[in-house]
Design a binder for these strands. Structure first.
Lengths: 109, 109
DNA sequence: TGACATGCCTCGAAACTCTAGGTATAATAT
DNA sequence: ATATTATACCTAGAGTTTCGAGGCATGTCA
């Protein structure tokens, strides 16, 4: 069963606009929120993080936990914030467009 | 520039739940509604129509216009209506999930 | 010591969409 | 009469994105 976790960039940028996070943490956070709905897969997330960093939307840095585990945190850059704003705009447009076709038929009995 | 017309099945099923339509007409109708936002491409639509018919969600029939032009109309089957209902449910869930992450940050300044 | 959780990563397949064509007929313009 | 545009269908190949299924290393707990 395909899980269709589109708009991955939008979600990643949104999460990082609140606070710096590391990959594994983002997956856990989305899992917590969406529960059974759907989940972002590692095979999806890590390449996206890499691409966002390569394009300058994110900056990463290593940080060690008290326990001695090393995590790779990501921080949103100015460029990333601009991208988030644009992606959000596109999402709103997309959402409205789909609903303009679907909504009228969604309240049948 | 990639146009990202996802949820194609949902849109097709929604349109056909109102009235029978032919492919070219669906594209024109969506074009009219979404205007510049985005458009569904023929290379996307026709394979989807074929797949939906093969799966039993749609039935097609030919119809000639007064002008003598032949069109291939699609009608939603019971199975298609059930699929629409399910796809709509998934869309609502998806929409809510994305918004739960994006919305809180969308009203800055 | 062995199992599980954490945390990172990649490769190849699968799914989906787009580009860029093709065919054929009708309408319109030249 | 002829060329162009609009209508109406279609497909092959490329591109993009996601997923499945692994791998690797360390920390925790039984």
């Amino acid at each position: 069963m395909a899980q269709a976790m589109e708009h991955t960039r939008l979600l990643v940028l949104s999460l990082l606009s609140v606070r710096d996070m590391y990959g594994y943490e983002m997956i856990a956070e989305l899992e917590r929120r969406f529960d059974k709905t759907f989940s972002m897969k590692e095979g999806t997330l890590y390449p996206v993080l890499r691409a966002l960093e390569n394009s300058g939307a994110l900056k990463s840095y290593q940080q060690e936990t008290p326990a001695g585990r090393v995590r790779k945190y990501y921080r949103l850059t100015k460029k990333g914030a601009a991208l988030l704003s644009e992606e959000t705009r596109l999402w709103r447009e997309y959402e409205k467009a789909i609903n303009s076709v679907v909504t009228p038929l969604a309240e049948p009995v």
